[in-house]
Design a protein around this nucleic acid. Sequence first.
DNA 1: TTTGTCAAGGACAATTATTGTCCAAAGATA
DNA 2: TATCTTTGGACAATAATTGTCCTTGACAAA
Lengths: 104, 104
Amino acid sequence: MRKNKVTTFAEQIRRLRQEAHLSLREVALNIGIDTSLLGKIERNERQPTKEQIKQVAKYFKLDERDMMKEYLSDQIAYKILEEEADLDILKVAERKIQYLRAKQ
Amino acid sequence: MRKNKVTTFAEQIRRLRQEAHLSLREVALNIGIDTSLLGKIERNERQPTKEQIKQVAKYFKLDERDMMKEYLSDQIAYKILEEEADLDILKVAERKIQYLRAKQ
DNA sequence: TTTGTCAAGGACAATTATTGTCCAAAGATA
DNA sequence: TATCTTTGGACAATAATTGTCCTTGACAAA
């Protein structure tokens, strides 16, 4: 049984904010970015930088590495969707990672 | 039992060329790109465009879609390696793809 | 030794992509 | 109405990437 519903990084951070009843302005100000930029990140119209992800994690007291995972898995998911590729590409990628790691 | 050894896209196309005893110039000329560019693609210093992948596939009489798969899985593998992320990100990505597909 | 072929890689202009900001418009709320 | 919020367009600035040209070095044949 899966604990949390699967959603995208963008949806997750929007949800976090809304559940805390905070405005874009409020959060953006605290993490040091423009209100409009945060809005775009929440709508997946801008890619957050690592630093921004870090700040968001810090602000919501979440693990930075977990947030990075969420973001990275998003990117992979979107890439496959936009190329209309098959899911089995993930298996191939996995083998390649092992192959590449093996040859340091 | 796996039929073919796992290698990267770059290694694969280099191997194809070398096994056919062809020079970079020969192949590059035929697929309509600069010799140096093909060399860089074979060394993974340049990303091939879709068109270039198509031409390579055509030249070596391979399935274009298979080549694209190889290339795309490469990109995913490199991304995970460069971020030093865990393999389980692939599982998360898979769930996200299903999630995103579900909401058309 | 000279000539030629080949691959590697540096430099760089040109192109393309992406970001972050500003502003205006549209929605909500009171 | 007045205020706060979100959306989204436009755009300059910045960053990333490409493709080309050229030089170097290795190697082999003549």
